Simulated scan of single mutants.
Amino acid sequence: MDQVLFIVWRESVEALLVVGILYAWLRANPAGQRGLRFLWGGVAAGLALSGLLALVILGVATFLDDDGQQYFQSGMALVASALVVQMVYWMRKHGRTLKRELESGLADNVERSNWWGLLVLVMIAVAREGSETVVFLYGTIAAADSAQIAPFALAGAVGLIAAFATFWLLQLGGKLITWRRFFRITEVLLLLLAGALLVSGLEKLVSVGALPGIVDPLWNSAGLLDDSHGLGKLLADFAGYRAQPALLVLLVWVSYWISTSVLLRRASRSA
């Protein structure tokens, strides 16, 4: 549930940032006033595309048998993990120029009165965030039973409300919370979450025999910190902690952090 709240919150804030930049530019330029309805049309189209992707994913899952669903859920968790890393990498590389790039593309469309181009620009931006959210959420809640759907829905609603409140605070430009600080903190949390999704996907593949655990379990630390409740459960959800890890999963998790650190260091240098 905490994963769902965080994902919806973080992705919604990023989508609001993109839409907010474009909205402010259109409002400030007389020539862009006509584009406001195309802006909201692009937002609606982007959300519709994200909803369509969710239906496609759910439709595919319903046609699979038990083993097929295990493989599909594992694949979605691994894809979600890769998407998180890609998103953090992209923001690390383009975050400083995001506003300038968006406004430049918007200015070109307005200058040529290409309002449909504006709609497509916004649709792609919103659909990107929405699609990532859909994949992340499926990778997180795929194994949940029907009794957990209501709490997950509530967590998503709380995350959305929190996103609007966060965006409002960030727009105030206070010293307590700034855009730079927001992205730095959530970047770390996202990478921890990606590690947890990676572990979840690998564990499913080990459980169905698609991958060898090598040594499974490698140790048992449940007596010190159980991963089924309390702090251990929080670390399991957000960082991939396991009280009884398989050696293969542990090795891949360590490799993930090493490779991700190198990748993001390169992104920072190129930025």
Rank of each mutant, 00 (worst) to 15 (best):
R180I: 07
L78V: 11
S131K: 12
L22C: 06
R112G: 06
G130I: 13
G51R: 12
M76Y: 04
A142D: 11
G232S: 11
F167C: 03
R265I: 06
A222M: 01
M1W: 06
K175E: 14
G209F: 11
L198N: 08
A31G: 15
I57G: 10
H229F: 12
S270L: 11
V249T: 14
S228Q: 07
G173N: 10
A222Y: 01
W179V: 09
E203C: 05
S74P: 10
V208Q: 07
D145W: 00
D65K: 01
F63C: 13
V43Y: 08
A194C: 04
Q3Y: 00
R112C: 05
L26I: 11
Q69V: 07
A28F: 08
S81E: 09
P151L: 13
F238N: 14
S228H: 08
T260M: 09
G42M: 12
V262S: 05
A77K: 06
L106I: 09
Y89L: 05
L234T: 10
G223F: 05
A143I: 02
N114R: 04
Y23P: 00
L224D: 01
T186I: 04
Y23C: 02
A127D: 00
L47E: 01
L211H: 06
D237L: 13
S113Y: 00
G130N: 05
V122H: 08
V206Q: 09
V43C: 09
Y138H: 06
Q70S: 12
L170P: 07
L55W: 14
R242Y: 00
V126S: 12
S200A: 13
M87Y: 02
E187G: 14
S12T: 15
Y241W: 10
A155M: 09
Y138N: 06
L5N: 09
S200W: 03
D66P: 00
G156Q: 04
Q69F: 04
G68A: 00
L197A: 03
V60M: 08
L58D: 14
T133E: 11
D237S: 07
S255T: 12
T133W: 11
P212F: 14
L218I: 05
I149G: 04
G42K: 02
K93L: 14
L193H: 09
G201M: 12
A236K: 04
L264H: 05
F63V: 15
K175M: 07
P30F: 13
D2E: 14
L169W: 11
T97I: 15
L224K: 01
V134A: 07
A147P: 00
S12V: 02
A125F: 11
